[in-house]
Amino acid sequence: MKFAQILYDKAHWIFEADKKPEFAPDIFLVDITDKPEIQEGWDYKELKGEFTVPVIPDPVEPPPTVEEMQAQTLLNTEYLVSKSELLGGM
Score class of each variant (00 low, 15 high):
35 K>T: 08
79 Y>W: 13
82 S>Q: 13
79 Y>F: 15
13 W>G: 02
67 E>P: 02
61 E>K: 15
43 D>Q: 06
2 K>H: 07
82 S>E: 14
64 P>L: 05
69 M>H: 01
81 V>D: 04
48 K>Q: 06
36 P>C: 12
54 P>E: 12
68 E>D: 09
88 G>Q: 12
86 L>Q: 11
38 I>K: 02
25 P>A: 09
88 G>K: 09
16 E>F: 04
14 I>C: 02
56 I>H: 07
89 G>W: 12
54 P>F: 08
36 P>G: 10
45 K>P: 01
34 D>H: 07
36 P>D: 13
89 G>P: 08
1 M>H: 07
74 L>S: 07
89 G>D: 11
2 K>D: 00
46 E>K: 09
90 M>V: 14
89 G>F: 10
72 Q>Y: 06
38 I>R: 02
43 D>T: 11
1 M>D: 07
56 I>V: 15
64 P>E: 04
65 T>F: 03
50 E>T: 10
21 P>I: 05
75 L>Q: 13
36 P>E: 13
32 I>C: 03
10 K>T: 13
25 P>V: 06
13 W>P: 02
74 L>T: 13
24 A>Q: 14
85 E>C: 00
8 Y>V: 05
9 D>N: 15
17 A>S: 14
48 K>C: 01
60 V>D: 07
13 W>A: 03
63 P>Y: 06
81 V>C: 01
22 E>R: 08
19 K>P: 00
43 D>G: 00
28 F>C: 05
29 L>G: 02
38 I>L: 05
88 G>Y: 13
85 E>A: 09
57 P>G: 08
61 E>S: 11
71 A>S: 08
41 G>P: 00
51 F>L: 03
57 P>H: 06
19 K>V: 09
8 Y>P: 01
42 W>F: 15
12 H>N: 14
56 I>R: 07
57 P>V: 03
67 E>I: 04
49 G>V: 09
47 L>R: 08
41 G>V: 10
81 V>F: 07
37 E>W: 15
72 Q>K: 13
42 W>N: 04
24 A>L: 15
55 V>D: 12
61 E>P: 01
61 E>Y: 06
72 Q>C: 03
27 I>Q: 08
79 Y>G: 05
88 G>W: 14
89 G>E: 12
6 I>D: 00
8 Y>K: 14
12 H>T: 00
27 I>D: 04
84 S>R: 15
27 I>V: 15
